[in-house]
């Protein structure tokens, strides 16, 4: 596991070095992601525990957003003053974006003769 953690952090660090050296406006984890993806696509060696580490980190991804959620309290006054525009923007734009995304994906996939797999809809 230490090898896998070191491996993963090294990619983020490499991302940070690139972002700083080239003064890129892209956040360093994204560069790290691209570098790691290129690394594994090129079939370069990876630590055996990398699969367990990535799966573990991503299986509770929503936990990592909790501190930012709590951070909204620092903007309580601002949000209270503008609750209607902010609330409506979030409540309308999010489902609209989901609906448009799903619709476009299905349409284009059908147009390419790659019809959707009609799995039964699971409850949830």
């Amino acid at each position: 596991m230490p090898a896998a953690i070191t491996f993963l952090l090294s990619f983020q660090l490499a991302g940070m070095v690139l972002v700083t050296a080239l003064s890129l406006a892209i956040p360093e984890p994204v560069i790290g992601l691209v570098l790691l993806f290129a690394w594994v696509r090129l079939k370069l060696p990876t630590p055996p525990a990398l699969d367990a580490l990535c799966t573990g980190l991503l299986s509770h991804l929503s936990l990592l957003f909790v501190p930012a959620a709590v951070g909204l309290m620092t903007y309580a006054d601002l949000l209270w003053a503008h609750w209607l525009p902010v609330g409506l923007a979030l409540l309308v734009s999010t489902p609209l974006s989901i609906a448009v995304g799903a619709w476009v994906f299905s349409r284009v996939a059908q147009g390419m003769n790659r019809p959707p797999t009609g799995d039964e809809v699971k409850n949830g």
Partner: peptide, 30 residues
């Protein structure tokens, strides 16, 4: 940990690349 978790997203992307890459066009349009 949001940073390392973002880097870790390369892993599921790699593991499922064969099914994802076939659908790049609809994916990108959507």
């Amino acid at each position: 940990l949001l940073g390392p978790a973002t880097v870790a997203l390369a892993w599921p992307l790699h593991k499922n690349w064969s099914s994802v890459s076939r659908l790049m066009v609809p994916l990108f349009c959507a």
